[in-house]
Each structure stands twice: as structure tokens, then as C-alpha cells.
Amino acid sequence: MEQDWIWGLVGGLMIGAAAALYLLVNGRIMGASGILGGLVDGSGRNSARERGAFLLGLVVVPPMLVPLYRQVDTHITTNGWLIVAAGLLVGVGTRLANGCTSGHGVCGISRFSLRGVVATVFYLLGGGIALVIGRHLLGVV
């Protein structure tokens, strides 16, 4: 659609505002994989309630907006094996790298963090390679 970039910018500003709120009020970096991963492996036990509250907001607020918004379909593949493989890769990769698109991307780049910039370069590279192989060579993605 023609105006998609405006929605991208508006949504992006909201994501930035959410990261600003979490940083200035709670003193924490808003990274989705870190907030969830700390609960999964127990490393974030001391801040479990705060993490839980963040994740609850993330899970329950978007469906409230769905009726107002045209986007309701995630168009995710119906190939269960691909989904499992991708989920495992995302889970392991974000924990090894200690961050994902929100922590390394949004919060890291804006802090001019070397690790954030390097991580972003390599996950974009990983995504590009996955599409070259999976879509253009194998035709499965």
C-alpha cells in the first residue's frame, strides 16, 4: 500500500516510546528476548514480576487493537517443521547473542553500542542468507 511507510514510522515511534518508558522509569533495556529469556532460564528471577508485567502487556494489548486495524493475519507459513526450526534458531540465537531486534537493534543502535551494531549487521545478514537459500534456491520459505 502507498501509505505503508507512514504506518511503519508511526509504529516505530511507538516502539521507541515504549523503550524510552522502560528505560527512564524502570531503568531497564527493553529487549523482548532478554525479558522472556531471563524468565525461561531463571537468570532474571529477581525481576520476574516486572518481566511478567511487560510480557503480559505485550501479549494482551495488540489483540485489543486488532478490530480497529486491517492487519489481523500474520501470514505465517503452514509448514510446521519450518516453524519449529525457525523458533529454535531464534530462541538459541537471541540467547547466545544476548539480544534481538529490540534490545540490540532499537536500544543498542541508538546508544551507539558496538555490540548492538555488530549484532544488527549479522542478524540482517543471517536473514538475507536464509531468504536467498530458503526462497530463491529451495523455494520453501
Binding site: 534458531l89 531464534v90 538459541v92 540465537g93 547473542a97 544476548n98 542478524y123 540482517l124 536473514g127 520459505v141
Partner: peptide, 10 residues
Amino acid sequence: GSLLFGAGWG
């Protein structure tokens, strides 16, 4: 880790 994450994301 970032390469693996990116691959899964893609």
C-alpha cells in the same frame, strides 16, 4: 548467535 537468530527470523 546473531547469524542463527537472523536465519530463524528470515
